[in-house]
Design a protein around this nucleic acid. Structure first.
Length: 502
RNA sequence: GCGCCUCUAGCUCAAUUGGCAGAGCAGCUGACUCUUAAUCAGCGGGUUCUGGGUUCGAGUCCCAGGGGGCGUACCA
């Protein structure tokens, strides 16, 4: 078969509407026209035209000629006068009017024959406001900019959840909130970067492919490198490399980039997610707390115009001012009506877990794990206002410095916003001898079956042995910050989330 | 991973007890020089997710598999 015959055989299986559009494309090209020209006239953005001519009265006409371009989202054909609504990438829409008198019979007939909903087109003509009050370009000429071979979905109904993520480009065409989310995310990330740069932080990029996945407790994705014939891990956190940068004298450093964790997927977890990590030499977890609050409030101002944000369900959430602070042991003791301290034996904690019907993986039972489970059950699950939760047990925080005055706990806080963990920070552990001991403790936990225990990283320890200055470090989920600012689920905040192949 | 719900035209959804597979938008043909999801007349369009089974007869009931959603567990 020839290529043309192959193409013919393929197209006969297509839905009617796609066959019709392919035929139009072929006909346009066969007649010497262009279905996908390299260039069409565009002198003005749609939003500019609408803003500049807002003052026109209904029926008022100007002699100002503009060329606009966009996707055709509505067509109304009333015979010798046709109306098309063009939409550009911002979602702004502008009406184009094509009359027999202005464009001529040949071009008007061509418009009716060739242009479908979903096509891109350009129109040139005078700016007027129609008798019915719509700012319009009264076309003297028009050109197809790109022929759509598939129909647009019904724009007046919501797309199904599945189509939204599988074909996000259609979602972006059809749904204003989808467009806003992409723009809000960009604005938010820009705000974070500007806030950090203005405070003297510099942004670096550390390896995504690592010989050992470290810096967090999570199962990694594994891949293979052919050149060295070794397995590599997609990073679960940039922490260890950023600390090496601090050792090297990059005193205020941050990275905004992707992490990969081979774990569950739900409305607040994605296998790849974006993370901000920032480290400040001569800082501690208190300085990081102030920094974190300031950059979050700055992002809220820049994205939402206020530190009191309005969520997708219409409710308001207040991120302004100072935030609540509580300690893990203090708040848990209060909730239980019983003093819990780092000295509370595992057996007692175990009984409390049983009483609360909390089941803990037996491979991971230790004081710290049980305290955290109890804390989440009795305190964490009930937090709604922005809250810094401070001073965690040492077992679950192997990279964190011991508390300066309290035994058995470390200088770490987690920031809870709307009940989920948004950020975490440490006074960083910088003593290489203690760090080695912590890694060895993790190794013992791994040997007992804890598959999330951290591995011992000699390369990192070597760096620490060159002396890392005292430092504060912070990590924050970028997707989660957008969730906090908008009330959306994580798959709505990620433009192209991973979807199972069909 | 487990539990519940769901999958029908390009899109969004109907279909009574198991009895001819439908609507709106979109598409095609025609009419219409101020329409706003234009209107009017007419016409097309289906592997009912896939594979088995029960039945005279399956979109509907049963079994297996796949996609999606929600809840739950681990994790940020």
């Amino acid at each position: 078969m020839t290529d043309a015959q192959n193409a013919e055989a393929e197209t006969t299986d297509l839905p009617e509407q796609m066959q019709v559009r392919r035929a139009k494309r072929d006909r346009i090209i066969a007649a010497g026209g262009e279905a996908y020209p390299v260039h069409v006239k565009r002198t003005h953005e749609i939003a500019d035209v609408k803003a500049s001519y807002e003052h026109l009265e209904a029926g008022e006409e100007t002699q100002d000629v503009v060329s606009v371009a966009g996707r055709v989202v509505f067509v109304r054909n009333t015979g010798k006068l046709c109306f098309a609504t063009l939409q550009d990438g911002t979602g702004e829409r502008l009406q184009v009017m094509l009359s027999l008198a202005e464009v001529g019979e040949e071009r008007l007939d061509a418009f009716k024959a060739d242009v479908d909903l979903g096509d891109h087109m350009s129109a040139t003509g005078r700016v007027i406001r129609s008798r019915r009050g719509e700012i319009s370009v009264f076309a003297t000429e028009w050109a197809l900019a790109a022929k759509a071979l598939r129909p647009l979905p019904t724009l007046h109904k919501d797309l199904s959840e599945e189509s939204r993520v599988r074909q996000r480009y259609v979602d972006l065409i059809a749904r204003p909130l989808a467009r806003d989310t992409v723009r809000n995310r960009s604005r938010m990330v820009q705000s974070l970067r500007e806030s950090l740069h203005s405070r003297g932080f510099i942004e670096i990029e550390t390896p995504m492919l690592q010989t050992q996945a470290g810096g967090a407790a999570a199962r990694p994705f594994i891949t293979h490198m052919n050149a060295f014939d070794i397995d590599l891990y997609l990073r679960i956190a940039p922490e260890l490399f950023l600390k090496k940068a601090v050792v090297g004298g990059i005193e205020k450093v941050f990275e905004i980039n992707r992490n990969f964790r081979n774990e569950g997927v739900d409305s607040s977890h994605s296998p790849e997610f974006s993370m901000l990590e920032a480290y400040e030499a001569y800082g501690d977890y208190d300085t990081m707390g102030n920094l974190t609050r300031e950059i979050i409030q700055g992002a809220a101002e820049d994205v939402c115009g206020s530190a009191v944000v309005t969520l997708a369900d219409g409710s308001e959430y207040d991120l302004s001012g100072k935030w609540e602070e509580l300690t893990v042991y203090g708040s848990l003791s209060e909730a239980l009506g019983q003093e819990i301290t780092p000295e509370t034996p595992v057996e007692a904690l175990d009984r409390l877990c049983d009483a609360a019907e909390i089941s803990v993986d037996p491979a991971r039972v230790n004081h710290g794990k049980l305290v955290e489970e109890l804390w989440e059950h009795y305190v964490g699950d009930h937090l709604t206002q922005p809250t810094f939760v401070r001073d965690y047990p040492v077992e679950t925080s192997p990279l964190t410095r011991d508390h300066r005055t309290k035994d058995g706990i470390v200088e770490k806080w987690d920031l809870y916003v709307r009940g989920f963990e948004l950020a975490t920070a440490y006074s960083e552990l910088v003593d290489p001898v203690i760090q080695r001991a912590r890694f060895e403790q993790q190794a013992r936990m791994a040997a007992q079956g804890d598959d999330e225990a951290m591995g011992l990283d000699e390369d990192f320890l070597t760096a620490m042995e060159h002396a890392m200055p005292p430092a504060g470090g912070m990590g924050m989920g970028i997707d989660r910050l957008l969730m906090a600012l908008t009330g959306l689920g994580i798959r709505e905040t990620i433009t192209f989330p991973l979807v199972k192949p069909e």
